[in-house]
Design a protein around this nucleic acid. Structure first.
Lengths: 349, 349
DNA sequence: TTGAAAGCGCTAACAA
DNA sequence: TTGTTAGCGCTTTCAA
């Protein structure tokens, strides 16, 4: 490996050049330098050139914190993003998409993980507000965001993602959890399944409720009875899912199919079915796709969400609000798609 | 769904309360309010209480951009993070780990994706510098970071991750790419393989070079000749990998094992082997683990990196620098681990 | 221990 | 078109 070290690491004490230094070197007034640097059309070509040359020579970098402080609108061109867990693929796709939209509009994005804790959510939102972010994209963990009402009233735009705002009026971008789930369960029913297990996330999470509702919708539509014994919540820990699966398959009248209402649960179920060598016997449909779902045996049938689309939409809606759109808030619903790969097409034995 | 809308979306024109308002309401001077809010020990208990009460009553939120502007050190308590692609699991694990360390120390993190473009890297770095981030964690795409020498000299701390700094002196946190690769290939050799293909990323990427070097080390150590025909670069597009795999298996003296030097390549190879029904015939070891690698058939043997550890270390090193550590820069090497799952233990037929 | 005043780097109002 | 001046919200002298 090359080892040519060209620049020393020692911090130099020379202060950064300011716009005053640029103005002085260019031999113009402070305001002219500012206008020239921002490309305001009023300033003459000659002075503009002189200012830019001086700035380049000094390696001048404008101080955006100072600028935003003085700006009429006081905007920072920064947005905040509150994620549940930035290491999870759904979140990171969201983050990437929002970031791309933001950068394209000259905004930067601060982000943090909240891990389903309403308390961390509130604290992080306050920190972002203290940094005067112009807007917030938030996957809410709490069930009452009215604590943020004050920030909202004071001009911080809010867009909710994946889960709706509660007790506050704001835009939201959501998947069609209920419809996607209903369709998946109807598919299982059409194959002859009558004992379909539902394994879901903690019911305090809005999407978990919606997906359960979709499951119930399907049963009702097909005239099947809802059996509590087939329904289990809060099994998103991979090891928990496998254990619970065992119980569901061990019932007197056991499940012949499983609807796993979250991707970590789906993965837990796959592991459990493998262990029992039942992966070709028990049908499985998962909500939310995941990488390599097509490479396991059998490949996994899923209701696929579109985090990329959701994130892009969230970014666009937020930026429209920041650019002054004051139309009534809206709820955008992004369709899911049903991807048949094999595990969901197994008939009851 | 509940629809109780409690707070209107209309932005209110009332300006945010400032520290002056707090001081006035508490009946103290501006400086006293500032000291009280920051918990400086000099201020009397009574005044402190009065100030805090006033702040609470006004729902006062300090303006951190204004504060950092005036601060002696001018620090923003913000760090920037330059990732290649924040939607990739390695990057997002890194991001999460750095974020956790930063938050624990009262810092926020700005981040952006650079997609292996040196130009985007330079532009984003400049934007972060303009926001006066205190430090930067960077997965470099470029091969010359001396353009940032000026920022560095002016006090912005830099920590490189996954790939070393070039033409500039800075801390770096790296995986032991070379050793991990050597061990993997030696393992294949020990099973009797003599024709081992190397499929790697673009050679302009430092890690790709290192992993190739590890492959060569292993051959040399075992006294095998290096055959150019078995080595292919820049196959990180999933569909490309499958095609290239076909060529390698179609040689007059074909490969009996594949070392896939990046996780997207590994996945492409798995797809290709599947298609040709050779997944139980041709051995495969991948560099970098990925979710569900244990659930495909056969389960995939990998050299596993530790992005969580790397990210945590990067955050800690950066924060130490920010807290004044001026010791010589260092290169930290994080061990890889070898995880045997089946695909790498196939003997040549 | 407190407060008045200066000033961080910038943009906006005002004057020339 | 340009320059001078005020002041964004805060922290830090400096003097009381």
């Amino acid at each position: 490996m090359k080892r040519e070290i060209t620049f020393p690491n020692q911090p130099e004490s020379r202060p950064r050049p300011t716009i005053r230094d640029v103005a002085a070197l260019a031999g113009v007034g402070l305001a002219t330098a500012s206008r020239a640097l921002r490309g305001e059309p009023v300033v003459s070509e000659e002075l503009q050139a002189r200012v830019l040359r001086a700035a380049a020579q000094l390696e001048y970098l404008p101080n955006l914190t100072a600028s935003s402080l003085r700006l009429k609108t006081r905007e920072t061109h920064t947005i905040g993003m509150l994620l549940q867990n930035s290491a999870n693929p759904f979140s990171s796709a969201l983050h990437r998409a929002v970031g791309d939209v933001a950068h394209a509009h000259g905004y930067e994005v601060l982000s943090g993980s909240v891990d389903e804790s309403a308390d961390r959510e509130r604290r992080l939102a306050a920190k972002f507000a203290a940094r005067r972010v112009d807007g917030l994209v938030i996957v809410p963990a709490s069930h009452d965001q009215s604590y943020r009402a004050n920030e909202l009233r004071l001009g911080m735009a809010l867009v909710f993602v994946d889960r709706p705002a509660e007790r506050i009026d704001a835009d939201a971008i959501l998947s069609d959890n209920r419809l996607g789930s209903r369709q998946a369960v109807l598919r299982l029913i059409s194959l002859g399944h009558r004992r379909i297990a539902f394994m879901g996330d903690d019911l305090s999470i809005w999407t978990a409720q919606e997906r359960l509702q979709g499951y119930r919708d399907a049963l009702e539509q097909a005239g099947l009875v809802f059996d509590e014994a087939l329904v289990r919540h809060d099994v998103a820990q991979p090891d928990v899912a496998a254990g619970v699966l065992g119980e569901l398959l061990g019932l007197a009248d056991p499940a012949t199919a499983v609807f796993a209402a979250q991707n970590l649960i789906t993965i837990g179920v796959i592991r459990g079915l493998r262990l029992a060598s039942l992966q070709h016997t028990v049908a499985l449909i998962g909500f939310d796709d995941f990488p390599l779902s097509d490479l396991v045996e059998p490949a996994v049938t899923v209701v696929s969400q579109n985090p990329q689309r959701i994130g892009t939409l969230a970014g666009e809606v937020l930026l429209q609000r920041l650019e002054g759109d004051t139309s009534p808030t809206q709820r955008y619903v992004v369709e899911t798609s049903f991807i048949e790969r094999g595990s969901g097409e197994i008939r009851p034995s």
